[in-house]
């Protein structure tokens, strides 16, 4: 636990934790707005986004991929809203139609392009590749102060940290708007707060989080990060601020514990090799949620205690 840890485990753990934080923050509000599955829809359209980016640019460089994924996420969000309004279709079904269609288009394009280098990227996009984000330039804890070694940090770390910081900042700045537009949208409008804009901004922020995180933990496991930590946190408290704090704690715990279990778990069981860290992180977050469902101090519904609401 020294040089080897810094070299092989520190950066993946940090990236996993930052990705979990970036997703859990907007996830808190998505859950309270009954929009949890927007995360599901967005994460599925990441694949078509990167395929289109590849076909347009011909490279598998990170930046075009990220831009493609973000573009696809925005297109999906707009399409879902359009289908919902134009077709007067309930939101869940509208999401189901849009994200599966885009995903199917992505897979078809991919098969048509027939490039093995991108083939690798499908699994990467779906399942992530956290283990490969190592810091080869490091030789020990001292490397944290060594500019030459720091320059070799995986670029994903800086990217993820930036996105997590921006999302944290946005959440703090728009805290009051998010809170009131989620709790009482009609009242928010009478205050002159653009409630619809707040909702759209939240979804776009979630899309950015999903796109930044898919690179590290894989697009589908991003869903677990959007939902499990905030859902577990909701069962721990009745204060929004405290809930968000719990969700961040659960997110970091899932990331660190999941990574450790994936890396060392098989060894402890006497097997060799390691299992998917991203998958293990999702499992841990699910287990945390399961425990919260059974033991969380505020797991039961309370609104039902009041008499049925009149019309």
């Amino acid at each position: 636990m020294g040089a080897e840890f810094v070299q092989f485990s520190l950066t993946p753990m940090l990236i996993g934790a930052l990705a979990a934080i970036a997703c859990a923050l907007p996830g808190n509000f998505l859950i309270l707005r009954r929009q949890a599955l927007i995360g599901d829809a967005i994460s599925h359209v990441v694949l078509p986004g990167i395929v289109v980016a590849f076909l347009l640019t011909g490279t598998v460089a990170a930046l075009p991929m990220l831009i493609g994924a973000a573009g696809a996420a925005v297109v999906a969000v707009v399409l879902i809203e359009g289908v919902r309004r134009l077709g007067r279709i309930e939101p869940g079904a509208a999401m189901g139609v849009v994200f599966t269609t885009l995903f199917a288009g992505g897979v078809l394009l991919l098969e048509q392009s027939d490039t093995s280098s991108v083939h690798l990227d499908v699994e990467h996009a779906l399942m992530g590749n956290l283990e490969s984000l190592i810091w080869l330039g490091a030789s020990g804890w001292g490397s944290l102060a060594d500019p030459a070694a720091l320059a070799q940090l995986p670029p994903e770390l800086g990217r993820m940290a930036l996105v997590a910081a921006i999302i944290g900042l946005l959440t703090a700045v728009f805290w009051r708007w998010l809170k009131i537009a989620t709790f009482d949208e009609g009242f928010a409008r009478t205050l002159g707060i653009p409630a619809a804009g707040v909702g759209f901004g939240l979804v776009i922020t979630s899309a950015v989080a999903a796109v930044a995180a898919f690179d590290a933990v894989g697009s589908i496991i991003v869903i677990a990060m959007f939902i499990c930590p905030p859902a577990a946190a909701r069962l721990m408290t009745n204060r929004l601020g405290v809930q968000v704090a719990w969700s961040l704690g659960f997110a970091v715990l899932s990331a660190v514990l999941g990574y450790v279990l994936a890396g060392y778990g098989p060894l402890w069981l006497g097997a060799t090799g390691a299992v998917s860290a991203a998958g293990m992180i999702a499992i841990v977050s699910g287990v945390i949620l399961g425990l919260a469902c059974v033991y969380g101090p505020h797991r039961a519904r309370q609104g039902a205690a009041a008499e049925p609401a009149g019309r």
Binding site: K179, F183, G186, F187, R301, G303, G310
Partner: peptide
């Protein structure tokens, strides 16, 4: 404005004083 009581989710994680302070937002 005082909306209909049934128009919001009373299971929302917040306190009474917090809701009143929303009037000052």
């Amino acid at each position: 404005y005082v909306p209909q009581r049934a128009s919001v989710d009373w299971d929302f994680p917040t306190t009474v004083i917090d809701v009143v302070q929303m009037g000052l937002y």
